[in-house]
Amino acid sequence: MIFQTLVLKLLQEFNGERTVSAVYHLLRGKRSGQTIQDVGIFRLHDFFGLLPKLNRKIFDDQINLLKDHQYINILPDNRYKLTVSGLSRLKNTVKLSFDGWHYRGNEHIFFARLSLIVQTLSHQRKGDMKFIPIQQNEVVQHWVKNFLKSNQFDNGQFQETLLEEIVSSLEQLTNDDREKTIVVKRLGGMKQPGFTWQQISLHENLTEMDVQLLYIACLHSWIDEITSIEGKYPLLSKIAHQVRIELPLTDSANQTAQLFKKGYSIDEISIIRKLKTSTIEDHIVELAMNDRNFPYQNFLNEKDVQNVLNAIENYQTKQLKILREVVPNLSYFQLRLVLARGD
């Protein structure tokens, strides 16, 4: 049901102006100009890259289910609009604390590290260090080994310190106890294996997908809490090191951003980077979405901006094609910049 609400909500946000694939790409966190731009236009940062491994069939099944329940109506070109019952289905649903834009699946790295650390500490406390590591990924194993060594994990107090940090940080969260329980059930130690998604789904009477969404929501707010104030949770913030994406640009966009900040024009950057100007424009739009101090005046004057905003208001649309007809003196690129501001 949580997944269903999520898909429904995203379809509503897109307001029939995108195909269902836009929702799919958004959830998978596709790094294409179009998807990134959609994030900005429709203010969907929280949902970007929530489910990087989402299977197309599972997604399509959900769309069909929404159709069967008559929560959505089909429009031309595989686009959808919510029906009245779809809209009422959306009311009274709990808002989950997603922050996809800043994690994009990285929360799983945090959890992989944490779970191996917890397993190791559990065995260390009981004096039996022979165990099969719960995380098979060698990068994670290596990271954890270094972390434990450099923090003198065998000083006798390490378990207590980490426990204290885990408990006090989780207590700070406004998330449901149910979400915290799910996260902790995915941890295990000596003679206390963790629980599978199938088992938790049975305990909680939810589908596996829904359990996983609750888990992701809880991890996002947990890591937000851990990294919010420096020094508050010394161990956990080390474990969360470089998990939160502070500069959420693609690598390529970042390179463009560096040149742009040095004062190069779009055409110059295009020559230097041997990329099409349209690609550079995509990058600039991406930058505008992420940088509050983006110098719009380089590309637009205040009057143009106002004209576009009025058009959006009057025609109730964010479709570029329609906006272009209403404000024909602006290029698509300029229109996208206005939309990127999101106001």
Partner: peptide, 17 residues
């Protein structure tokens, strides 16, 4: 055995017994 422990109990029991 269904684990009814609260999350606090569970993590405590894993880490320090």
């Amino acid at each position: 055995p269904i684990e009814n422990n609260s999350w606090k109990k569970r993590i405590e029991s894993i880490l320090i017994g």
